[in-house]
Design a binder for these strands. Structure first.
Lengths: 232, 232, 232, 232
DNA sequence: TATGAATGAGGCTTCATTCAT
DNA sequence: AATGAATGAAGCCTCATTCAT
């Protein structure tokens, strides 16, 4: 988990973005789309070629194997012109000096909501295949997840220092927020459960719920793992 | 979403469990294991046969196609002798008359933790393929998810009636709890992100966080969707 | 081509007919039906079992292999109670002392028409598989075709002796009549070409045409193979 | 049954012939050969590939399924360079202005004899599978049989107009000649009955027999369907 | 005798990858 | 660089046959 490497890669990636030919981009886009629809394994290179509007052989000029195509997706997160800054925005939020934790949280929530909503296929593929392909999990963890979590924890600590949120390990707080948001977006956008209800309203409930859950306010409810009591 | 049908199916399923031959069970188990490891599509029927210790033809004697094998998994949740009551326990918790919301929540959390920890492959397959196969999503929603959510909401309402938790639509509360727990278990057990930290401790943080998030206590932080303010 | 063997077989077969159990008959019938519909090779033993209303294993108690089932069909021509005398009637016509060739021919034509019309599946299978399976061709030739052709030729010779039909080798006459009738019945009943027209009328045309073609009457049209002239 | 369409198809087919690659031709040839030997259903695509000298996958590159390979055979009748004019010659005979019916008939007989003798596998497959596969029967009827029969009947009518052959419906005459020749060639070349005798001589007998059978000459033998008397 | 669960050899078909153009 | 014909390994599935009941 080396931040320097991460940024070097990001930078390199952006310059690399320039070198992505139009054909490469259409191959990548087609691949992500179809991977998301049917899964990596059930996707045919010939179908990718067809949807990308190129010959089958062309794919193999740019990506030595079908697997390379999959492993190139994390790079695409930062490379592609249209996608540039997909993660950057979030990282910038993490660094921005917010007055109130609530504003910070709300920006994150809506930023990720927009990100997810606009990149369902990409995210779907990543989550699906991260659970199946160790190489991809490794790559995604090192280049995206861990660096982001680290920055996130730093931000959390600033709010803790100012006494705005509960004082448990910042990493645990990061995980609570991360998994809450993740669970919300996943069930809604990826698993696509047909939950009824107003999504906008539900997201606000979620924000309030997180704020509350991490708030300092009430300490009457707490629990000790040893005794079975509440801990917060 | 008809509860009566749901229970009829559960009951029928259990009697059906008796009719599952030893060979069928070993096929099903092997299939779930390998599906979880490599995904449905990348799994070979010959590998399933090998691990199940049966001839490849035998698989097709019991399940007409490979896909049927996948679609039979939800039934297996209630059918298989060893797995019987996987969902029943949770449903029983939903119906038990708890004094305190905290006890109710904790029972759920630990019950699901145990369930997930003991059935990682099964859950992994279901989640993976629910996102890819509409038939499976439909089947799982109708036979497992929706009935459970309904019962869950009923329980929530009982606590709300007693003023123990916040008074927003019970369905929204259900979803908040569900997605929080789901996000926690998913990132840990399914996506298998190598988050560091003490899982036991983290689960307690999560319980406290949910309790807090849904508590009545502090209303100083709130938000209105219209004005952008906090709502809780 | 041994007539004695032929009759011995026929006789044995008839006694054997008694030993055909009800199940055997239903297997045989089902087999012939489906063989006729889809061809021997494309027919499944399981489908035969299903249509015969027996278990799959039962077939193999009576016929060691699927091929044995096919090779047993010629026997069935004489064995089966309902089918008994399928060929006998024809052979009896060959032996009956007709006054006029025309009556002889007409009896043959209508007898075969009835035979074919009532046994399309049986005939279809035999013709189909005779062209593919040397063993079957051999068996059918020796037990059915050649003996019948021999008797037929003897009958022809009697008419030739009385000057009623043209005096070319009796075997050649047999073949002319046989192939004419065969061609007529085959195109109509086996290949099932959707020729329009009145079949009854066409059969009468055919009879008149054969009579004429073999008649003594007109010798103005004739041809010599050497010189290229007509020969009749 | 539209002659114009028929010729358009023939013409298109011939130009299409040019587009048949060398590999396609060798696949088609191999397929026809083996289909004829063992029947369509008993033939293995791997055996076709081996005999054609191509990879098994190559077959499916040109014909989507094994069945498509079968259904492509009628087209091959007109397409293939070597086979071009297989039917054309016959059709040309039908249109040629013969003086005498005998010459017309003899040309047909020998032309078809040559055709059959040189294309036994092709014909065997077609006849076999026409009786089993409705699609093929339909295709062969519409593209080959019916158009040919129509032209044939026109020719017959010209001879009838000149009083050279008997005056029954020209279609019935066509069928008589067709089925006679068909029966002769089928029993000899396709069913491959081991009839003894001089084939050349027998063909001449057949020609004379047909001539006689259709001749005007002797009307003493005739029959009325109603009364049971001869009709010619 | 009758059955049908079990089997594995083998069939059709798919597909990632190569390579000549 | 781009293509698509060609390929063979491998996958899913079928099926005749066996065998324990």
């Amino acid at each position: 988990m080396n931040l320097k490497n991460f940024f070097k890669e990001l930078t390199e990636s952006e310059s690399a973005a320039v070198s992505m030919t139009e054909k490469q981009i259409s191959i990548m886009s087609a691949a992500i789309e179809i991977f998301a629809e049917k899964g990596y394994s059930a996707t045919t290179t010939s179908e990718i070629a067809k949807r990308a509007g190129v010959g089958e052989g062309t794919i193999f000029h740019h990506y030595k194997t079908k697997k390379d195509l999959l492993l190139a997706i994390p790079d695409y997160l930062s490379k592609s012109p249209g996608q540039k800054g997909l993660m950057d925005e979030l990282l910038r939020i993490f660094e921005r000096p917010y007055e109130r934790f609530e504003d910070f949280l709300r920006d994150i929530a809506y930023n990720r909501r927009d990100f997810v909503a606009k990149n369902i296929p990409l995210i779907k593929v990543l989550i699906q295949e991260i659970a199946l392909q160790p190489e991809l999990r490794e790559k995604a963890s090192v280049t995206v997840l861990f660096p982001a979590m680290e920055k996130f924890s730093r931000a959390i600590e600033r709010f803790q220092a100012r006494g705005q949120i509960i004082d448990i390990p910042s990493v645990s707080v990061s995980k609570l927020i991360f998994t809450s948001l993740f669970g919300y977006f996943f069930t809604l956008y990826i698993a696509a459960f047909a939950f009824s209800g107003d999504r906008e309203q539900d997201l606000e409930y979620l924000i309030g719920y997180i704020l509350h859950g991490l708030g300092i306010a009430d300490t009457s409810v707490n629990h000790d793992p040893e005794t079975g009591g509440a801990v917060l």
